[in-house]
Amino acid sequence: MANLANLYDVSKCTACRGCQVACKDWNQLPAVIEPFKGNYQTHQDTNGDTFTIVRFIEHEDAVDGVQWNFLKYQCMHCLEPACMAVCPRDAYSKTEWGATIHDPEKCIGCQYCTYACPFGIPKYRKREDKITKCTMCAERVNEGLTPACARTCPTGALQFGDRNELLEYAEERVKFLRANGFPRATIYGRLELGGLNNLYVLTDTPDKFGLPVDPKVPGQIPFWQNIVQPYFGWLIPLALAGSAVSFVTTRILANKHGDHGEGGHE
């Protein structure tokens, strides 16, 4: 089966937040009201009950003055997901078409995936002691439908389809943008972290949209994946055995010191 992906073109986005509402509606997620902080962005970040947000990013350009950038932000569905690599309960898996899925039945709420993700996407839902995140509407796609966000977008800023075909379209779109006032237009997600299944056509460099220019998996992740995790089953009994030995040794030494102390008083 073809690798499927979302492509988001920032140059076509009006920040209507229809995608954000559609995500809430389809996943039956409760409202999360955050205090107003002087910005049109409704949520500072994704959270346990908000899988998709639209970022409002304001910056000042020396030539063009104050500029607004919009960005749809959600799970990137990496081709090589760090969350899946570090999960001690194998709660993450990939669908045959590319989505990264989380199984709450296996989740223990350890949040290793949150710390491993270069985008900080998996979020903790306290009331259930579980992690949650965007599924790219896998249940819809499995039935031949498009994700709710892409289905809702009124301007065509969101497209869903074959990843290779979307990349070909993105290349043509970037050429057009560079020739029409956006010389720094670029594609994000083609190569980053081995490739993402949420692709972006950006009108400027990634940092102008709050995206890491060169996202990297934290350095301790390979240590966990290659050394700790394969032997995790042995670590607990070894730790218990070490504690038992330490306890017995401490008691023996304490008794010896006690005996010596009594002899000294005589």
Score class of each variant (00 low, 15 high):
residue 107 C to R: 13
residue 250 T to G: 06
residue 86 V to R: 02
residue 44 Q to A: 03
residue 91 A to R: 01
residue 219 G to M: 13
residue 256 K to P: 00
residue 264 G to W: 13
residue 110 C to V: 09
residue 234 W to S: 12
residue 158 L to Y: 00
residue 74 Q to V: 00
residue 212 P to Q: 04
residue 73 Y to R: 11
residue 116 A to R: 00
residue 140 R to H: 06
residue 120 G to T: 11
residue 241 A to W: 05
residue 246 S to Q: 07
residue 62 A to G: 10
residue 77 H to G: 07
residue 146 T to E: 14
residue 189 G to W: 09
residue 237 P to V: 14
residue 255 N to V: 15
residue 45 D to M: 11
residue 236 I to G: 08
residue 238 L to C: 10
residue 14 T to M: 10
residue 157 A to C: 05
residue 82 A to T: 06
residue 70 F to E: 08
residue 79 L to Y: 04
residue 194 G to I: 08
residue 88 P to H: 07
residue 129 D to F: 09
residue 168 E to C: 05
residue 100 T to H: 09
residue 44 Q to W: 02
residue 108 I to E: 00
residue 197 N to Q: 07
residue 9 D to A: 01
residue 76 M to G: 02
residue 76 M to W: 07
residue 71 L to N: 02
residue 238 L to W: 04
residue 167 L to G: 02
residue 122 P to T: 07
residue 257 H to R: 14
residue 94 K to G: 05
residue 108 I to W: 08
residue 120 G to R: 14
residue 18 G to A: 14
residue 40 Y to M: 15
residue 98 G to F: 04
residue 215 P to G: 01
residue 229 Q to H: 11
residue 264 G to Q: 14
residue 109 G to E: 04
residue 246 S to D: 07
residue 66 V to A: 04
residue 168 E to M: 14
residue 107 C to Y: 05
residue 136 M to N: 08
residue 84 M to Y: 01
residue 130 K to Y: 00
residue 186 T to M: 03
residue 77 H to R: 10
residue 76 M to A: 07
residue 251 R to G: 07
residue 192 E to C: 08
residue 1 M to R: 08
residue 46 T to N: 04
residue 173 R to I: 01
residue 52 T to N: 06
residue 182 F to S: 02
residue 163 R to P: 06
residue 262 E to T: 13
residue 181 G to D: 05
residue 126 K to T: 07
residue 197 N to D: 09
residue 68 W to A: 10
residue 200 Y to V: 06
residue 50 T to H: 02
residue 99 A to H: 00
residue 104 P to A: 11
residue 128 E to D: 14
residue 239 A to R: 14
residue 38 G to C: 01
residue 6 N to W: 11
residue 239 A to T: 15
residue 211 L to H: 01
residue 187 I to W: 00
residue 100 T to D: 08
residue 222 P to C: 04
residue 208 K to P: 03
residue 24 K to P: 02
residue 214 D to C: 07
residue 252 I to C: 01
residue 105 E to R: 13
residue 129 D to Q: 14
residue 215 P to R: 04
residue 179 A to S: 13
residue 114 T to A: 06
residue 220 Q to C: 10
residue 217 V to I: 15
residue 18 G to T: 14
residue 145 L to W: 09
residue 68 W to V: 12
residue 11 S to E: 11
residue 116 A to V: 11
residue 224 W to A: 05
residue 121 I to P: 00
residue 38 G to L: 02
residue 142 N to F: 13
